[in-house]
């Protein structure tokens, strides 16, 4: 595979110790282009004002690069030429070794995971903390932007990768924008809700990142003390409710209810609207949640279980705490902060 730039770039070549067949291109904040290279991949670099391409190696910083050719021994079409846009860097073409600042001055550097491998010693805890995303982990890292930097990754990238829209690489906002469309399916910036070490620990719920629109924000929860909370955000009810992990989206509403007999759990139930449905989820409460749909006999929602409920459904958490799912009053303002 071949990648070309309209203007010369400075290329930093780092090892990818995790995947020998991996190659990734990404931008660093100062405009340099970083190439992560697995041990099985070789690269030829074409320099500005120079003739034949020359071989480049891990650990080099190569200035004045106009194109690279990756021999990554995987089934990428050799005819694929990627135009990476007008990334401007130093003008002169020279090759110099990649140097690292020693412990005497600066202990913490920014780099890719591979730098730790290059250093060779993992034993000491005083190794520099670095920001990186090891290639094999890309799909388990809980980072909505995790795919944004991934540009070329054999096994993940497909030969039909297209050149990036030029706007992505020519605007200042593109400092860390991919040179190519992300190879992985983009993880939407939706909220990941993870209830941590509670009985719901294995549950991961994705809720929509934006406040439910007027069209969908049609439900609310009525509390015994007269409060009504709109379901334009998730609502957590209990004696002293905690929130789960909130990554992005609308901040949930935490509603503490009195329970002198301590029958209501500290974080007892989650109520949220998903599309046109209201879903009630018992969060592993001690006593469960009694659900009475209109015209139906009450039934127990077991600790940890969830159920879709209709308007008019009563939720009995114990200790006379009975919530009702209601149509959202039109006057009820949206309150949740965004995150």
């Amino acid at each position: 595979m071949r990648v070309e730039w309209d203007a010369p770039v400075t290329l930093h070549i780092y090892p990818d110790v995790i995947d020998p067949k991996a190659s990734q291109l990404r931008r660093s904040a100062d405009g340099a282009v970083q190439l992560l290279l697995g041990a099985d991949v070789s690269v030829l670099v074409r320099l500005q004002n120079a003739g034949a391409p020359v071989s480049a190696h891990i650990g080099q910083v190569v200035m004045g690069v106009t194109a690279i050719e990756l021999d990554d021994a995987v089934d990428i079409d050799d005819d694929t030429v990627l135009h990476a846009g007008s990334i401007v860097a130093a003008d002169d073409a020279s090759v110099q070794p990649l140097t690292r600042t020693g412990n005497d001055v600066d202990d913490t550097i920014i780099g890719q995971p591979a730098i730790a491998g290059a250093a060779g010693s993992h034993a000491d805890v005083d190794e520099q903390t670095i920001l990186g995303q090891p290639a094999p982990l890309a799909d388990v890292i809980d980072d909505p932007d995790a795919s944004a930097d991934t540009v070329i990754g054999p096994g993940r990238s497909r030969p039909e990768s297209r050149p990036a829209p030029s706007a992505q690489v020519s605007t200042p906002a593109a400092v860390s924008a991919p040179l190519l469309p992300p190879a992985l399916p983009a993880i939407p910036a939706s909220a990941h809700v993870n209830a941590g070490a509670s009985p719901t620990a294995s549950r991961r719920t994705r809720i929509e990142p934006t406040r439910a629109s007027d069209a969908s924000g049609t439900f609310a929860v009525a509390f015994p003390d007269g409060r009504t909370v709109a379901l334009d955000r998730a609502v957590y009810v209990g004696r002293a409710p905690k929130s789960p992990r909130i990554t992005s989206g609308v901040v949930p509403e935490l509603v503490a209810v009195p329970s002198p007999r301590r029958e209501v759990s500290s974080t007892h139930v989650e109520i949220q609207q998903e599309g046109r449905a209201v879903v009630v989820r018992d969060l592993g409460s001690t006593n469960g949640t009694r659900v009475r749909a209109p015209g139906a006999a009450p039934s127990l929602l077991s600790p940890g279980a969830s159920r879709v409920v209709a308007t008019g459904t009563l939720l009995d958490l114990g200790d006379d705490v009975v919530l009702e799912i209601v149509e959202r009053p039109s006057a009820l303002p949206a309150q949740g902060g965004s995150w």
Binding site: D143, S176, K242, S243, R245, P252, W339
Partner: peptide, 13 residues
């Protein structure tokens, strides 16, 4: 690193 920060948030009583 030129990216929008993506913080996690929890509410603890």
């Amino acid at each position: 690193f030129g990216k929008n920060p993506v913080p996690d948030l929890w509410f603890i009583p």
